[in-house]
């Protein structure tokens, strides 16, 4: 939940008076031109950037990505999301699913669903940009969480990949996850968003 939120940058307001509530199983899409403040809002929701004014509450608590409990409740795909170049997609998912409590997904099935099964044993440094993006999306969605924050998740994905992404977000919503996604892909927004916040 966001109330009267404002972020000031270089003496000007990036946005101000923003209010947003996303319930479980709902998706809010953030749209608008580059530099309008979509990623900034996502960073505020994840607790890596402080707002200038207003309040933010995620899962009933003040966002703080330094808290293990918060990180477990809120899963993200942000600009700084990264992969271990020396590990394979399978090893990434093993690490994720074995280290998060109550994670029960099958890594083989997950990789197959993302079209990465034939690249499961290849170090990620040798994957294409689109394949790396698919793995990052799997990383954000494969483990238990209540809130999902996505920053332009469609980036680097081909047409089939974007269709897979929309299905992934729909499955998240069906599972009761609250999703906030910034996007420049109208088809994705039309398909999954319950509400749209237009930045200008």
């Amino acid at each position: 939940m966001v109330a009267d939120l404002g972020v000031e940058v270089d003496g000007g307001w990036l946005f101000r008076g923003l209010a947003l509530t996303v319930a479980a199983g709902e998706c809010a899409a953030l749209t608008g031109p580059n530099g309008a403040g979509k990623s900034t809002l996502l960073r505020c929701l994840y607790g890596v950037q402080d707002a200038t004014e207003g309040s933010v509450s995620v899962c009933g608590q003040r966002p703080d990505e330094r808290s293990t409990a918060f990180r477990r409740a809120v899963s993200v795909l942000l600009d700084d999301s990264a992969l271990f170049d020396e590990l394979t997609p399978r090893q990434h998912l093993d690490l994720l699913l074995r280290s998060f409590p109550d994670a029960v997904a099958d890594p083989v099935a997950l990789l197959a669903s993302a079209g990465l099964d034939h690249r499961a044993s290849v170090p990620v440094a040798r994957l294409s940009a689109g394949q790396r993006r698919r793995l990052l999306l799997l990383g954000a969605t494969a483990r238990p969480h209540q809130v999902l924050l996505l920053d332009e998740p469609e980036r680097a994905l081909d047409t089939a990949g974007r269709d897979w992404l929309a299905g992934l977000v729909e499955a998240e919503l069906a599972g009761g996850t609250a999703v906030v996604t910034a996007s420049h892909h109208p088809a994705l927004v039309d398909r999954v968003a319950d509400s749209v916040v237009e930045f200008s």
Binding site: E86, Q91, R98, S99, S121
Partner: peptide
């Protein structure tokens, strides 16, 4: 920097944190 870990199931098992350090 790290290079490819040729042990495919290096992280598939109990004690994943220790396995991660070993990898």
């Amino acid at each position: 920097a790290g290079r490819e870990v040729r042990w495919a199931r290096a992280l598939d098992g109990r004690g994943v944190l220790a396995r991660f350090v070993v990898a």
